[in-house]
Design a protein around this nucleic acid. Structure first.
Length: 230
DNA sequence: TGCCAGGCCGGGT
DNA sequence: ACCCGGCATGGC
């Protein structure tokens, strides 16, 4: 019925053909995903990697070990990721929650429902929609779609979204387009990041080489804007 | 060499 | 309900 939904499905199929499986999130453990999700807030992933490396070298990339670090110790380790004072605080807030509610145990946390966990995460200072959903999808394997800056920009550039579309509305569009399949949501968002990094930067966009051009028509635009795509 | 990066919060209209 | 400044580093 909805051409929007159909577009989203076709885009996924095409991107998967072009790029293949992405094997996201780039981390060795679910806990590393959780930490990375907080550290990457408005931050280049390259800088996050340095911080994660520091934490690993200090044997601090575990819930208890990290929580027991002093604030200044934690700040120093994550400094390369920027906003380090805020992020140290946010990590501590999350760790306290993770340890007190789930004993720092990912399996235990996964037992609870997606909606309940999302509310809990959003209630924490420093965890917003994207961070919460990244944790839900990539650390806890919950079927929820992550909307990030890349996703927004790509949808907007290709006339599948408007600037004023909010997080939930964009997310709902993906949710209503597919079955609740966390593997699928995982792969799809990772593919969009691939497109975003390589073809859809604000400066130096390589739009002419973008794989999504396969779906363009009438001079590189889709037929309708999102607002008219019921 | 400025501009940018996988946000979020809090205070002010 | 929006709007905006602050937060900070390293890469290109």
């Amino acid at each position: 019925m909805s051409s929007s939904r159909q577009f989203l499905k076709e885009i996924y199929s095409h991107l998967f053909e072009v790029f293949g499986a992405q094997k996201w999130w780039p981390a060795e453990t679910p806990f590393e995903v959780m930490v990375g999700a907080i550290l990457t807030q408005n931050t280049n992933w390259k800088n996050v990697e340095k911080a994660l490396q520091n934490l690993k070298q200090s044997a601090a990339l575990q819930p208890n070990a990290m929580y027991q670090l002093s604030t200044s110790e934690l700040e120093l380790l994550i400094q390369p990721s920027g906003f380090f004072r805020q992020k140290a605080k946010r990590l501590k807030t999350f760790l306290k929650y993770f340890l007190e509610e789930y004993e720092g145990d990912v399996a235990l946390m996964k037992e609870k429902s997606t909606s309940a966990l999302r509310e809990e995460l959003l209630a924490l200072k420093g965890i917003g929609p994207e961070t919460a959903d990244s944790i839900l999808l990539y650390a806890l394997e919950k079927p929820i779609f992550v909307i990030d800056a890349y996703t927004k920009r790509i949808l907007f550039r290709h006339y599948l979204a408007l600037e004023e579309d909010d997080y939930e509305s964009l997310q709902d569009r993906f949710h209503s387009s597919f079955a609740d399949d966390h593997v699928y949501f995982n792969e799809y968002h990772a593919l969009l990041v691939q497109v975003g990094k390589n073809y859809c930067r604000p400066k130096n966009p390589k739009c002419s080489e973008c794989p999504l051009n396969a779906f363009n028509w009438n001079g590189g635009t889709y037929q309708r804007l999102s607002s008219s795509m019921e």
